[in-house]
Design a protein around this nucleic acid. Structure first.
Lengths: 205, 205
DNA sequence: CGTTTATTGTGCAACTAAACACAATAGGGG
DNA sequence: CCCCTATTGTGTTTAGTTGCACAATAAACG
Protein backbone atom coordinates (compact mmCIF):
# COMPACT_ATOMS: atom_id res chain seq x y z
CA UNK A 1 0.00 0.00 0.00
CA UNK A 2 1.11 3.54 -0.73
CA UNK A 3 2.38 5.82 1.99
CA UNK A 4 -0.33 7.19 4.24
CA UNK A 5 -0.90 10.91 3.63
CA UNK A 6 -1.31 13.03 6.79
CA UNK A 7 -4.80 14.41 7.26
CA UNK A 8 -3.38 17.85 7.86
CA UNK A 9 -2.04 17.81 4.30
CA UNK A 10 -5.43 16.76 2.96
CA UNK A 11 -6.92 19.65 4.88
CA UNK A 12 -4.79 22.17 3.03
CA UNK A 13 -5.50 20.88 -0.46
CA UNK A 14 -9.01 22.37 -0.68
CA UNK A 15 -7.53 25.73 0.26
CA UNK A 16 -4.94 25.44 -2.50
CA UNK A 17 -7.66 24.45 -4.92
CA UNK A 18 -9.82 27.42 -4.03
CA UNK A 19 -6.91 29.79 -4.59
CA UNK A 20 -6.09 28.13 -7.91
CA UNK A 21 -9.68 28.46 -9.08
CA UNK A 22 -9.61 32.10 -8.15
CA UNK A 23 -6.33 32.67 -10.01
CA UNK A 24 -7.78 31.00 -13.04
CA UNK A 25 -10.80 33.28 -12.90
CA UNK A 26 -8.38 36.21 -12.84
CA UNK A 27 -7.12 34.95 -16.18
CA UNK A 28 -3.78 33.74 -14.87
CA UNK A 29 -1.98 30.83 -16.54
CA UNK A 30 0.92 29.94 -14.23
CA UNK A 31 1.88 30.46 -10.61
CA UNK A 32 4.64 29.46 -8.22
CA UNK A 33 4.73 27.94 -4.76
CA UNK A 34 6.00 31.27 -3.56
CA UNK A 35 3.11 33.29 -4.96
CA UNK A 36 0.55 30.78 -3.75
CA UNK A 37 2.16 30.81 -0.34
CA UNK A 38 2.07 34.56 -0.10
CA UNK A 39 -1.61 34.63 -0.94
CA UNK A 40 -2.46 31.98 1.59
CA UNK A 41 -0.04 32.83 4.36
CA UNK A 42 1.69 29.44 4.04
CA UNK A 43 5.37 28.83 3.36
CA UNK A 44 6.34 27.99 -0.20
CA UNK A 45 8.28 24.96 1.01
CA UNK A 46 5.20 23.54 2.67
CA UNK A 47 3.12 23.87 -0.46
CA UNK A 48 5.80 22.14 -2.51
CA UNK A 49 6.15 19.36 0.03
CA UNK A 50 2.40 18.87 0.28
CA UNK A 51 2.05 18.56 -3.48
CA UNK A 52 5.10 16.32 -3.77
CA UNK A 53 3.24 13.70 -1.73
CA UNK A 54 1.11 13.06 -4.79
CA UNK A 55 3.44 13.58 -7.72
CA UNK A 56 5.43 16.17 -9.63
CA UNK A 57 3.15 18.86 -10.97
CA UNK A 58 5.50 21.77 -11.57
CA UNK A 59 8.38 22.74 -13.81
CA UNK A 60 11.67 23.99 -12.46
CA UNK A 61 12.22 27.64 -13.23
CA UNK A 62 8.65 28.11 -14.39
CA UNK A 63 6.29 27.03 -11.62
CA UNK A 64 2.89 25.41 -11.99
CA UNK A 65 0.33 25.59 -14.76
CA UNK A 66 -2.74 26.72 -12.85
CA UNK A 67 -5.37 24.79 -14.76
CA UNK A 68 -3.32 21.60 -14.80
CA UNK A 69 -2.52 21.78 -11.10
CA UNK A 70 -6.13 22.53 -10.21
CA UNK A 71 -7.21 19.46 -12.16
CA UNK A 72 -4.64 17.31 -10.41
CA UNK A 73 -5.75 18.52 -6.98
CA UNK A 74 -9.39 17.91 -7.94
CA UNK A 75 -8.46 14.40 -8.85
CA UNK A 76 -6.61 13.82 -5.58
CA UNK A 77 -9.58 15.10 -3.58
CA UNK A 78 -11.99 13.15 -5.80
CA UNK A 79 -13.92 16.30 -6.68
CA UNK A 80 -13.23 15.90 -10.38
CA UNK A 81 -16.74 14.54 -10.38
CA UNK A 82 -19.99 15.66 -8.73
CA UNK A 83 -21.07 14.31 -5.35
CA UNK A 84 -24.73 14.17 -4.38
CA UNK A 85 -25.47 15.80 -1.04
CA UNK A 86 -28.58 16.10 1.09
CA UNK A 87 -29.49 18.69 3.68
CA UNK A 88 -31.33 17.71 6.85
CA UNK A 89 -33.15 20.55 8.55
CA UNK A 90 -35.00 23.35 6.77
CA UNK A 91 -34.48 26.13 9.29
CA UNK A 92 -32.51 29.27 8.54
CA UNK A 93 -29.25 27.42 7.99
CA UNK A 94 -30.71 24.60 5.93
CA UNK A 95 -32.47 27.08 3.69
CA UNK A 96 -29.35 29.22 3.31
CA UNK A 97 -27.41 26.11 2.26
CA UNK A 98 -30.13 25.08 -0.19
CA UNK A 99 -30.00 28.51 -1.78
CA UNK A 100 -26.23 28.70 -2.08
CA UNK A 101 -25.01 28.26 -5.67
CA UNK A 102 -21.37 27.83 -4.79
CA UNK A 103 -21.50 24.05 -4.47
CA UNK A 104 -21.77 23.02 -8.09
CA UNK A 105 -18.42 24.44 -9.21
CA UNK A 106 -16.70 22.81 -6.24
CA UNK A 107 -17.92 19.28 -6.86
CA UNK A 108 -21.26 18.99 -5.07
CA UNK A 109 -24.90 18.80 -6.08
CA UNK A 110 -27.73 19.22 -3.61
CA UNK A 111 -30.21 16.41 -4.07
CA UNK A 112 -32.81 17.25 -1.45
CA UNK A 113 -33.68 18.98 1.77
CA UNK A 114 -35.52 17.20 4.57
CA UNK A 115 -37.38 18.27 7.69
CA UNK A 116 -39.64 16.52 10.16
CA UNK A 117 -41.87 19.54 10.65
CA UNK A 118 -45.10 18.68 8.81
CA UNK A 119 -45.94 22.34 8.22
CA UNK A 120 -42.73 22.77 6.20
CA UNK A 121 -42.92 19.54 4.22
CA UNK A 122 -44.11 20.17 0.68
CA UNK A 123 -43.24 23.86 0.65
CA UNK A 124 -40.83 25.16 -1.94
CA UNK A 125 -37.39 26.34 -0.95
CA UNK A 126 -35.76 27.84 -4.02
CA UNK A 127 -35.59 25.06 -6.56
CA UNK A 128 -36.20 22.39 -3.90
CA UNK A 129 -39.32 21.04 -2.29
CA UNK A 130 -38.83 20.18 1.38
CA UNK A 131 -39.32 16.45 1.91
CA UNK A 132 -40.40 14.54 4.98
CA UNK A 133 -37.51 13.15 7.01
CA UNK A 134 -39.26 9.79 6.96
CA UNK A 135 -38.36 9.46 3.29
CA UNK A 136 -34.69 10.28 3.89
CA UNK A 137 -33.39 6.77 4.19
CA UNK A 138 -35.01 5.61 1.00
CA UNK A 139 -33.64 8.57 -0.98
CA UNK A 140 -30.14 8.00 0.40
CA UNK A 141 -30.19 4.35 -0.46
CA UNK A 142 -31.81 4.47 -3.87
CA UNK A 143 -29.48 7.29 -4.97
CA UNK A 144 -26.42 5.95 -3.18
CA UNK A 145 -25.80 9.29 -1.45
CA UNK A 146 -22.71 9.39 0.76
CA UNK A 147 -22.65 13.00 2.03
CA UNK A 148 -25.09 14.90 4.24
CA UNK A 149 -25.23 18.29 5.89
CA UNK A 150 -26.96 18.49 9.25
CA UNK A 151 -28.74 21.75 10.07
CA UNK A 152 -31.11 20.69 12.83
CA UNK A 153 -31.24 21.90 16.46
CA UNK A 154 -28.48 20.62 18.75
CA UNK A 155 -30.86 18.33 20.60
CA UNK A 156 -31.76 16.37 17.47
CA UNK A 157 -28.40 16.21 15.79
CA UNK A 158 -27.08 12.96 17.25
CA UNK A 159 -30.28 11.14 16.44
CA UNK A 160 -30.24 12.46 12.88
CA UNK A 161 -26.59 11.48 12.52
CA UNK A 162 -27.41 7.95 13.67
CA UNK A 163 -30.18 7.68 11.08
CA UNK A 164 -27.94 9.02 8.33
CA UNK A 165 -25.13 6.61 9.12
CA UNK A 166 -27.55 3.73 9.28
CA UNK A 167 -28.84 4.72 5.85
CA UNK A 168 -25.36 4.72 4.35
CA UNK A 169 -24.03 8.28 4.72
CA UNK A 170 -20.23 8.32 5.12
CA UNK A 171 -19.43 12.04 5.45
CA UNK A 172 -21.32 14.56 7.57
CA UNK A 173 -20.94 18.32 7.71
CA UNK A 174 -22.71 19.35 10.89
CA UNK A 175 -23.87 22.86 11.77
CA UNK A 176 -25.27 21.69 15.12
CA UNK A 177 -23.25 22.93 18.10
CA UNK A 178 -22.66 19.49 19.62
CA UNK A 179 -20.11 16.73 19.26
CA UNK A 180 -21.40 13.90 17.14
CA UNK A 181 -20.39 10.33 17.82
CA UNK A 182 -20.20 8.19 14.73
CA UNK A 183 -18.68 4.81 13.97
CA UNK A 184 -15.21 4.47 12.48
CA UNK A 185 -15.29 4.98 8.74
CA UNK A 186 -17.68 7.92 8.91
CA UNK A 187 -16.10 11.40 8.68
CA UNK A 188 -17.51 14.42 10.44
CA UNK A 189 -16.73 18.10 10.06
CA UNK A 190 -18.25 20.67 12.39
CA UNK A 191 -19.16 24.27 11.78
CA UNK A 192 -20.07 26.19 14.91
CA UNK A 193 -19.60 29.96 14.75
CA UNK A 194 -19.26 30.29 18.52
CA UNK A 195 -16.36 27.84 18.53
CA UNK A 196 -14.61 29.80 15.83
CA UNK A 197 -15.19 33.08 17.66
CA UNK A 198 -13.99 31.67 20.98
CA UNK A 199 -10.84 30.55 19.27
CA UNK A 200 -10.02 34.18 18.55
CA UNK A 201 -11.05 35.93 21.77
CA UNK A 202 -8.05 34.41 23.57
CA UNK A 203 -5.83 36.66 21.50
CA UNK A 204 -7.86 39.85 21.86
CA UNK A 205 -7.15 42.77 24.21
CA UNK B 1 6.68 36.66 29.95
CA UNK B 2 4.77 33.44 30.45
CA UNK B 3 5.32 30.48 28.17
CA UNK B 4 3.69 30.80 24.77
CA UNK B 5 0.66 28.50 24.47
CA UNK B 6 0.37 26.66 21.13
CA UNK B 7 -2.55 27.79 19.00
CA UNK B 8 -3.60 24.20 18.48
CA UNK B 9 -4.26 23.97 22.23
CA UNK B 10 -6.29 27.17 22.16
CA UNK B 11 -8.30 25.67 19.34
CA UNK B 12 -9.35 22.70 21.48
CA UNK B 13 -10.45 24.72 24.49
CA UNK B 14 -13.73 25.92 22.97
CA UNK B 15 -14.57 22.30 22.19
CA UNK B 16 -13.91 21.30 25.78
CA UNK B 17 -16.01 24.21 26.96
CA UNK B 18 -18.94 23.24 24.76
CA UNK B 19 -18.84 19.69 26.10
CA UNK B 20 -18.66 20.95 29.68
CA UNK B 21 -21.65 23.22 29.14
CA UNK B 22 -23.57 20.31 27.74
CA UNK B 23 -22.66 18.09 30.69
CA UNK B 24 -23.77 20.79 33.04
CA UNK B 25 -27.09 21.01 31.26
CA UNK B 26 -27.43 17.27 31.75
CA UNK B 27 -27.23 17.96 35.47
CA UNK B 28 -23.76 16.48 35.92
CA UNK B 29 -21.44 17.77 38.65
CA UNK B 30 -18.06 16.16 37.97
CA UNK B 31 -16.26 14.54 35.07
CA UNK B 32 -12.84 13.10 34.27
CA UNK B 33 -10.34 13.59 31.50
CA UNK B 34 -11.19 10.08 30.40
CA UNK B 35 -14.92 10.69 30.10
CA UNK B 36 -14.40 14.00 28.35
CA UNK B 37 -11.95 12.37 26.00
CA UNK B 38 -14.33 9.59 25.10
CA UNK B 39 -17.09 12.06 24.29
CA UNK B 40 -14.84 14.15 22.13
CA UNK B 41 -12.67 11.50 20.54
CA UNK B 42 -9.53 12.95 22.12
CA UNK B 43 -7.07 11.13 24.38
CA UNK B 44 -7.42 11.73 28.11
CA UNK B 45 -3.72 12.55 28.37
CA UNK B 46 -4.06 15.29 25.81
CA UNK B 47 -6.91 16.93 27.66
CA UNK B 48 -4.96 16.84 30.91
CA UNK B 49 -1.87 18.24 29.26
CA UNK B 50 -3.80 20.99 27.51
CA UNK B 51 -5.42 22.09 30.76
CA UNK B 52 -2.15 21.84 32.68
CA UNK B 53 -0.78 24.63 30.51
CA UNK B 54 -3.01 27.00 32.43
CA UNK B 55 -3.11 25.60 35.95
CA UNK B 56 -4.34 22.71 38.06
CA UNK B 57 -8.07 22.42 37.84
CA UNK B 58 -8.74 18.83 38.90
CA UNK B 59 -8.47 16.63 41.96
CA UNK B 60 -6.62 13.35 41.93
CA UNK B 61 -8.95 10.42 42.30
CA UNK B 62 -12.03 12.57 41.68
CA UNK B 63 -11.67 14.42 38.42
CA UNK B 64 -12.93 17.88 37.55
CA UNK B 65 -15.84 19.87 38.91
CA UNK B 66 -17.71 20.70 35.72
CA UNK B 67 -18.93 24.14 36.62
CA UNK B 68 -15.58 25.19 38.06
CA UNK B 69 -13.63 23.92 35.08
CA UNK B 70 -16.04 25.56 32.65
CA UNK B 71 -15.56 28.87 34.42
CA UNK B 72 -11.80 28.51 34.32
CA UNK B 73 -11.85 27.75 30.59
CA UNK B 74 -14.16 30.70 29.99
CA UNK B 75 -11.68 32.89 31.79
CA UNK B 76 -8.76 31.57 29.75
CA UNK B 77 -10.62 32.18 26.52
CA UNK B 78 -11.83 35.57 27.78
CA UNK B 79 -15.46 34.62 27.23
CA UNK B 80 -16.32 35.10 30.88
CA UNK B 81 -17.69 38.38 29.62
CA UNK B 82 -19.78 39.35 26.58
CA UNK B 83 -18.16 40.49 23.35
CA UNK B 84 -20.00 42.79 20.98
CA UNK B 85 -20.10 41.48 17.41
CA UNK B 86 -21.37 42.94 14.16
CA UNK B 87 -22.53 41.14 11.03
CA UNK B 88 -21.70 42.53 7.59
CA UNK B 89 -23.99 41.30 4.82
CA UNK B 90 -27.71 40.70 5.15
CA UNK B 91 -28.10 37.87 2.67
CA UNK B 92 -29.21 34.39 3.66
CA UNK B 93 -26.19 33.76 5.84
CA UNK B 94 -26.17 37.14 7.53
CA UNK B 95 -29.83 36.80 8.35
CA UNK B 96 -29.40 33.26 9.66
CA UNK B 97 -26.61 34.50 11.94
CA UNK B 98 -28.71 37.43 13.12
CA UNK B 99 -31.51 35.08 14.02
CA UNK B 100 -29.37 32.55 15.87
CA UNK B 101 -29.84 32.67 19.65
CA UNK B 102 -26.87 30.50 20.48
CA UNK B 103 -24.37 33.35 20.76
CA UNK B 104 -25.41 34.93 24.05
CA UNK B 105 -24.67 31.89 26.21
CA UNK B 106 -21.26 31.49 24.58
CA UNK B 107 -20.03 35.01 25.20
CA UNK B 108 -21.20 37.07 22.24
CA UNK B 109 -23.83 39.75 21.64
CA UNK B 110 -24.84 40.84 18.17
CA UNK B 111 -24.79 44.61 18.00
CA UNK B 112 -25.86 45.21 14.44
CA UNK B 113 -26.18 43.95 10.90
CA UNK B 114 -25.01 45.99 7.92
CA UNK B 115 -25.56 45.87 4.19
CA UNK B 116 -24.81 48.22 1.32
CA UNK B 117 -27.99 47.34 -0.57
CA UNK B 118 -30.25 50.36 -0.14
CA UNK B 119 -33.39 48.30 -0.60
CA UNK B 120 -32.51 46.23 2.50
CA UNK B 121 -31.39 49.09 4.72
CA UNK B 122 -34.04 49.98 7.24
CA UNK B 123 -35.88 46.66 7.02
CA UNK B 124 -36.31 44.55 10.14
CA UNK B 125 -34.45 41.31 10.51
CA UNK B 126 -35.68 39.65 13.69
CA UNK B 127 -34.85 42.04 16.48
CA UNK B 128 -32.40 43.98 14.31
CA UNK B 129 -32.82 46.72 11.77
CA UNK B 130 -30.40 46.45 8.87
CA UNK B 131 -28.06 49.45 8.81
CA UNK B 132 -26.22 51.05 5.94
CA UNK B 133 -22.63 49.89 5.59
CA UNK B 134 -21.59 53.54 5.45
CA UNK B 135 -22.37 53.82 9.16
CA UNK B 136 -20.31 50.74 10.04
CA UNK B 137 -17.08 52.49 10.91
CA UNK B 138 -18.72 54.91 13.25
CA UNK B 139 -20.61 52.16 15.10
CA UNK B 140 -17.43 50.09 15.46
CA UNK B 141 -15.48 52.98 16.81
CA UNK B 142 -18.02 54.51 19.15
CA UNK B 143 -18.83 51.09 20.65
CA UNK B 144 -15.25 49.80 20.57
CA UNK B 145 -16.28 46.63 18.74
CA UNK B 146 -13.45 44.19 18.06
CA UNK B 147 -15.20 41.26 16.36
CA UNK B 148 -17.06 41.03 13.03
CA UNK B 149 -18.62 38.30 10.93
CA UNK B 150 -18.43 38.73 7.18
CA UNK B 151 -21.31 37.31 5.16
CA UNK B 152 -20.96 39.16 1.86
CA UNK B 153 -20.28 37.74 -1.64
CA UNK B 154 -16.73 36.54 -2.27
CA UNK B 155 -15.99 39.47 -4.55
CA UNK B 156 -16.61 42.05 -1.84
CA UNK B 157 -15.09 40.26 1.13
CA UNK B 158 -11.54 41.60 0.93
CA UNK B 159 -12.74 45.15 0.59
CA UNK B 160 -15.09 44.73 3.57
CA UNK B 161 -12.28 43.18 5.59
CA UNK B 162 -10.04 46.14 4.83
CA UNK B 163 -12.71 48.56 5.99
CA UNK B 164 -13.32 46.58 9.17
CA UNK B 165 -9.65 46.44 10.06
CA UNK B 166 -9.27 50.10 9.37
CA UNK B 167 -12.17 50.79 11.71
CA UNK B 168 -10.59 48.80 14.53
CA UNK B 169 -11.88 45.22 14.16
CA UNK B 170 -9.33 42.66 15.40
CA UNK B 171 -11.09 39.31 14.82
CA UNK B 172 -13.01 38.30 11.71
CA UNK B 173 -15.15 35.24 11.13
CA UNK B 174 -15.58 35.06 7.38
CA UNK B 175 -18.21 33.06 5.51
CA UNK B 176 -16.93 34.27 2.15
CA UNK B 177 -15.18 31.54 0.12
CA UNK B 178 -11.95 33.47 -0.39
CA UNK B 179 -8.71 33.94 1.47
CA UNK B 180 -8.59 37.24 3.27
CA UNK B 181 -5.35 39.14 3.70
CA UNK B 182 -5.16 41.13 6.88
CA UNK B 183 -2.31 42.80 8.77
CA UNK B 184 -0.53 41.06 11.62
CA UNK B 185 -2.49 41.34 14.84
CA UNK B 186 -5.85 40.67 13.18
CA UNK B 187 -7.17 37.11 13.47
CA UNK B 188 -9.29 35.46 10.79
CA UNK B 189 -11.34 32.29 10.86
CA UNK B 190 -12.96 30.96 7.71
CA UNK B 191 -16.13 28.97 7.27
CA UNK B 192 -16.62 27.60 3.77
CA UNK B 193 -18.82 24.52 3.48
CA UNK B 194 -17.22 23.42 0.20
CA UNK B 195 -13.80 23.38 1.84
CA UNK B 196 -15.11 21.21 4.66
CA UNK B 197 -16.81 18.85 2.23
CA UNK B 198 -13.72 18.58 0.01
CA UNK B 199 -11.73 17.68 3.07
CA UNK B 200 -13.86 14.56 3.43
CA UNK B 201 -14.27 13.36 -0.15
CA UNK B 202 -10.62 12.27 -0.24
CA UNK B 203 -11.55 9.49 2.17
CA UNK B 204 -14.75 8.37 0.47
CA UNK B 205 -15.21 5.36 -1.80
C1' DC C 1 -6.83 4.11 60.37
C1' DG C 2 -5.10 1.16 56.68
C1' DT C 3 -6.22 -0.50 52.00
C1' DT C 4 -8.08 0.00 47.61
C1' DT C 5 -9.54 2.50 43.65
C1' DA C 6 -9.73 6.31 40.67
C1' DT C 7 -7.63 9.87 38.61
C1' DT C 8 -4.59 13.89 38.23
C1' DG C 9 -0.28 16.39 36.59
C1' DT C 10 3.99 15.71 34.31
C1' DG C 11 8.86 14.07 32.75
C1' DC C 12 10.30 11.65 29.02
C1' DA C 13 10.16 9.20 24.77
C1' DA C 14 8.16 8.70 20.32
C1' DC C 15 6.21 10.56 16.61
C1' DT C 16 4.76 14.18 13.31
C1' DA C 17 5.16 18.44 10.93
C1' DA C 18 7.59 22.48 9.27
C1' DA C 19 11.55 24.88 7.69
C1' DC C 20 15.97 24.98 5.56
C1' DA C 21 18.92 24.69 1.93
C1' DC C 22 20.56 23.05 -2.26
C1' DA C 23 21.26 20.18 -6.56
C1' DA C 24 18.80 19.88 -10.71
C1' DT C 25 16.99 22.07 -14.51
C1' DA C 26 13.66 24.83 -17.63
C1' DG C 27 13.54 28.77 -20.27
C1' DG C 28 14.99 33.35 -21.77
C1' DG C 29 18.53 36.51 -23.53
C1' DG C 30 22.57 37.60 -25.75
C1' DC D 1 24.98 27.61 -27.67
C1' DC D 2 26.30 29.38 -23.21
C1' DC D 3 25.04 31.93 -19.17
C1' DC D 4 21.78 33.64 -15.91
C1' DT D 5 17.58 33.55 -13.35
C1' DA D 6 13.73 31.42 -11.41
C1' DT D 7 11.87 27.73 -9.31
C1' DT D 8 11.00 22.85 -8.39
C1' DG D 9 11.41 18.49 -5.55
C1' DT D 10 13.57 16.58 -1.64
C1' DG D 11 17.13 15.00 2.00
C1' DT D 12 18.25 16.75 6.33
C1' DT D 13 17.51 19.36 10.34
C1' DT D 14 14.76 21.66 13.61
C1' DA D 15 10.61 22.41 16.01
C1' DG D 16 6.25 21.03 17.75
C1' DT D 17 2.79 17.61 19.31
C1' DT D 18 1.11 13.48 21.22
C1' DG D 19 1.27 9.40 23.93
C1' DC D 20 3.17 6.70 27.74
C1' DA D 21 3.68 5.60 32.21
C1' DC D 22 3.96 6.54 36.90
C1' DA D 23 4.40 9.01 41.44
C1' DA D 24 1.24 11.52 44.10
C1' DT D 25 -2.93 11.68 46.34
C1' DA D 26 -8.10 12.19 47.26
C1' DA D 27 -11.95 9.69 48.65
C1' DA D 28 -14.46 5.54 49.78
C1' DC D 29 -14.85 1.57 52.45
C1' DG D 30 -14.38 -1.65 55.95
Amino acid sequence: MAKQIPDIVIGRLPVYLRALQQMKQEGRQVTSSQELGERLGISAAQIRKDLSQFGEFGKQGTGYNIEYLANQVREILKVNRSWDVIIVGAGDIGRALAGYNGFSERGFKIRGIFDNNASLVGSKQGEFTISDSKTMKEVIQTSGIKIAMIAVPAGHAQQVADQLVEAGIRAILSYAPVNLNVPAGVRVQNIDPSIHLQRMTYYLE
